[in-house]
Design a protein around this nucleic acid. Sequence first.
DNA 1: GATAGTGGATAGTGTCACTATCGCCACCCT
DNA 2: AGGGTGGCGATAGTGACACTATCCACTATC
Lengths: 229, 229
Amino acid sequence: MSELSRRSGVPIPTIKFYLREGLLRPGRATASNQAEYEEDHLRRLRLVRALTTLGGLSVAATREVLEAVGEPLGRYKTLGVTHYALRSPVTAEPDGKDPEGQDTADGSTAEVERLVERMGWTVTEQSPLRGALATGLRALREVGAGYGADELVPYAELAAATARLDLDQLAGIEDRIDIAERALVLTVLMEPVLATLRRMAQENEAARRYADRDGDDRSGDDRSGGAGG
Amino acid sequence: MSELSRRSGVPIPTIKFYLREGLLRPGRATASNQAEYEEDHLRRLRLVRALTTLGGLSVAATREVLEAVGEPLGRYKTLGVTHYALRSPVTAEPDGKDPEGQDTADGSTAEVERLVERMGWTVTEQSPLRGALATGLRALREVGAGYGADELVPYAELAAATARLDLDQLAGIEDRIDIAERALVLTVLMEPVLATLRRMAQENEAARRYADRDGDDRSGDDRSGGAGG
DNA sequence: GATAGTGGATAGTGTCACTATCGCCACCCT
DNA sequence: AGGGTGGCGATAGTGACACTATCCACTATC
């Protein structure tokens, strides 16, 4: 265990915690107080750390999703199960109670419906993604940045292109467990990476469009240093 | 205050909490125990809720980023300040200590460098995004899904296209505070939406490619119901 | 003048990820 | 053989965090 801790950089008590929580299988016991951990354990431990720290999953979500990944299903179902077990980035609330008596209630779900139809996407009726998207759209609308299906289509097309890249990554793999694990990694760990890429691209695009005339509206209070820091 | 609570759906003690934490400006006091809250307060409160619940920001991060947004800068600097104040999705660690004596140390930062150069992006040297991206790539490599600059280029191009859409949203706005707030909303709240769109597109793409022959490798233990959970 | 409800302060609650400690017992070395 | 070393398992604790409950003084309103 000390070797596992040393090689992973995870403190021993934390490893014990993960064992207790069922995120790690116990090692092969060589004695009543001695156990051997294989290379698999190291891989798994690193995966757990990546999912919790980077992916921001709770330990409960991590356990769930790792259990789901253990099941050898096809590529299609694996993704579905993964998405269901993740149930983030937004906890789906099925569009119920609105604080004010406004009509904000089911406008979002309808918009989601319309978008899915317009894109010609195959998304199961029970998929938690529908609710998650609706929640996100509702929040955007509440802060005055409402998006309808029309405005979302370009974004959805880019998402589709991204998804094609993702699925290409899974194409070469044959073993179903490996597929599942890779799908999980792709879905969860690529998300912050993609978000960061988007932010970088935003900075670049803003520089390209506005850097020269940064003080266009009202000048006077500009700081030095550009976008950094 | 009770009206503010009623209209926003946020309980009064929580509003008090936000006031105490400086996320909300106090209302205009009409008496020693009475205050009036304008429409602005409602907007702000909704924004805070959206950032914390959907965007997953801590109240400290929310306060920071809202303070930054209060400064009337240009579009370019506004985005930079926003990104700096966010400092998520990944806390940047500048690539130091590796658990094992491996060469994993600075490979990621070099890869980031290469990608930025290859894309021709303008990203300031001090931008926290560089570190964040490096951290993400390192995590991916640690779980056996290493990406180099070459593999990332297609993703980066899609991110660039997304960023162009984003910046188009800001084009029409003139007031600098509004720009800042909109930029914040775009960056933070669109992230879960885009992530959800990507997952939806993944499900669709997986269905398109694999749904018919879901039991291709080894059949037998397939559940009914497809991808929905 | 009774009631309701606000503002402000203090302290408490629940959750969550992680960690310190303790007794036990195998292993190793002499 | 026997004692030191140190891993193992379980229990309980720590600290951070986001709220939330309670209390009190006071004022607007009925």
